[in-house]
Amino acid sequence: MTTSTSAPVTAPTTHAVAARTKGLRKEYGSTVAVDRVDLELPEGAVLGMLGPNGSGKTTTIRMLLGLVRPTQGEIELLGQRLPDGVEQALPHVGALVEGPGFHPFLSGRENLIRCAAFEPLLPKKQIKQAVEDALERVGLAQAAHRRYRGYSLGMKQRLGLAGALLVPRKLVVLDEPTNGLDPAGTREIRKIIAELHEQGSTVLVSSHLLSEVEATCTHVAVLHRGTVVAQGELTELLQAGGSALQVITPDVETALGALRQAKISARPLGEGLRVELAGTSAPQVIETLVKAGVGVYEATRWKTGLEELFARLTEAEEAERGMSSVDTLDGGRR
């Protein structure tokens, strides 16, 4: 066990990772849907996958579930290498991908019974109970006898969720689960995700609703144009990615000098300075300043919301292009 750190990452280990991808790439003809995706899904985490339309969320999820073969790259799912281990891994995985898929001429209950018949972990005798439990859990018990054809968008979505929850799962993958749900439904999904999290299941949820992700997820991965542009623990990401320290001080010059020496980036702002917390922490900054004899009147954390972070990561592209030229110009002048 002590040498486990030097073991190759690709070997199926007991490493606490529910799923992992390495250098994932998928081409559809000339379109590159996903490229160089290194995703890590820690066991027990609730990972929110964010990204604009067409950024490759669904494609990544499909590859993770063995539905789509990657053009390149490796996937490890619940300790199994895909595609060989897919049949060992998938019984423990519940999934709702690209909207619910059911037969319109069957009732909700009958549809679930058909799904249950193909669940390897569900003994025949328990099918009935499991179906009723799942229906109850997503609030569909009243409408279970009705044909799926007549279901509303939200009811369909709920049934899809029920299908993913038929069996206790180690990993639940939900692709835009709140799509079409009313506020109550959204809250229920949030509750279900929280329950899964409490029970120790790992959850991968893709969403457009940033508030949703912020409220339910422990980890975040942001996709943009087919690549992961940021991932990690939500709190860390929000801090490291976007947080800064606003320091009120009269000795701006001394402070800047001291910080520069400590290789912490900062710039004058208002009555003091703004210190970027990338690669450092607030106590460290204050310690540096105090040791340099700078009088600190006030220090406030500036926390970026997920929305701001997301906007910066995914919308920066165009702005970046404009800015980078400015940056180069600026650098040239120096």
């Binding site: 063995g66 998938l90 019984p91 690209e98 898929g101 037969h103 669940e119 299908g163």
Partner: peptide, 14 residues
């Protein structure tokens, strides 16, 4: 067409 094939494959059925 109905998206149920995905469900079967994820169940999984080889």
């Amino acid at each position: 067409q109905h998206g149920t094939l995905r469900g079967l494959l994820v169940a999984p059925v080889s």
